[in-house]
Amino acid sequence: MTGPRIRELHDLADLQETYRLIGRIWGDDAGPVSVEMMRALAHAGNYVAGAFEDGRMVGCSVAFFAAPAGTALHSHVTGAVAGRGIGLALKLHQRDWALARGLSRITWTYDPLVRRNAHFNLVKLGARPEEYLTSFYGAMTDAINGGDESDRVVAAWDIAGPPPRPAEPPADAAHGVLDRDGRPVIGSVDAETVLVALPEDIEGLRRTDPGAARAWRLAVREVLGGLLAGGARVTGFHDRTCYVVTRAPRPPAAGPSDRSPR
């Protein structure tokens, strides 16, 4: 089987079709990016691309150059028809496009509660979350976000180096967030490695049990957000269910010989 055909987009007709596809994927006529913005970004030399099967657009991606200047690309939107490897093909095309322009890093934001996105970003691509952003876009009312606050993590993909080895949690890892009968329970973070569980289907939960969805948002915000703010690193995504977070080693306690004289 051959993959989708991917090409950069510049023509207005292609950009209008991109806008319609984004609207269908996000379930929102407005969508996260306008035709006019895509037109301006493409004209200025940024990345606007579409994936096609049998002449039909089945995926798209929009990205722009980012700081540090000359080294990074920020991917604002990537959407694809699910289940056929189109999203992966788009990200690999985006990587090759960035490398050809001397870039070494691609960043993007994603909802940390969505298991499949976490697995895709951390396991398939080898990106790593670097920063937790609380309600980054405010409340969002499209079909995917369902009125939830738009907490995001910034994922960074080192496209110039080898992919990181996935971290397996040690036996003594602490469970910072656990899934108990579909609801989050905040546990302990008092270990070098902390596991942060995610709900099985946060998008469905927003429709069927908004209270539980809100509880997950707050629990992951408190634990994962707090760990990242404190200097911890996400080093893997275990068993398609939970983040593996490694805390910075604690400095040894000062002994008598370490103390300065009064």
Rank of each mutant, 00 (worst) to 15 (best):
R247P: 12
G231P: 10
V153N: 09
L227V: 02
H175M: 12
A40W: 06
Y47C: 04
G176L: 09
I22P: 03
W216Y: 04
Y137N: 07
K124T: 15
G55V: 04
R259H: 08
R221Q: 01
E8G: 13
H10C: 06
V58I: 06
A197T: 10
P249D: 02
V244F: 02
A80E: 10
V114Y: 06
D151T: 01
H10P: 01
I186H: 08
D28M: 13
L205P: 04
A80N: 11
R240E: 11
P4A: 14
D111I: 02
D190K: 12
Y243V: 05
G23W: 08
V35I: 13
E130V: 15
P256T: 08
R116V: 12
N145A: 09
A232Y: 02
G45E: 11
P164H: 09
A30M: 10
G70F: 03
T134R: 15
V81D: 11
A191R: 03
A232P: 03
A248H: 07
P169L: 14
I144G: 07
I106H: 01
S150P: 06
L195P: 13
E53F: 00
G204Q: 03
H238E: 15
G23E: 03
G45R: 12
I86S: 03
E222C: 06
M57C: 05
L9P: 07
A191T: 04
S104A: 00
P32C: 14
R152I: 07
P68L: 02
I86V: 15
D11F: 11
G87R: 13
D190C: 03
G182W: 05
A30W: 08
V194N: 07
V123G: 08
P169D: 13
L205Y: 01
P252F: 01
R128K: 12
I202G: 00
E192C: 06
D28R: 11
L195H: 12
V245E: 01
A254M: 13
H43G: 13
E200R: 10
V62T: 05
A143P: 04
A89T: 03
L99G: 01
P261N: 08
L103E: 00
P256D: 14
A118P: 02
T107L: 07
A127P: 04
K124P: 12
R24L: 15
A82V: 05
E203V: 11
A42H: 14
G45T: 07
D190H: 10
A127M: 14
S34H: 10
Q16M: 11
D14L: 08
R240W: 11
D172H: 10
E222H: 12
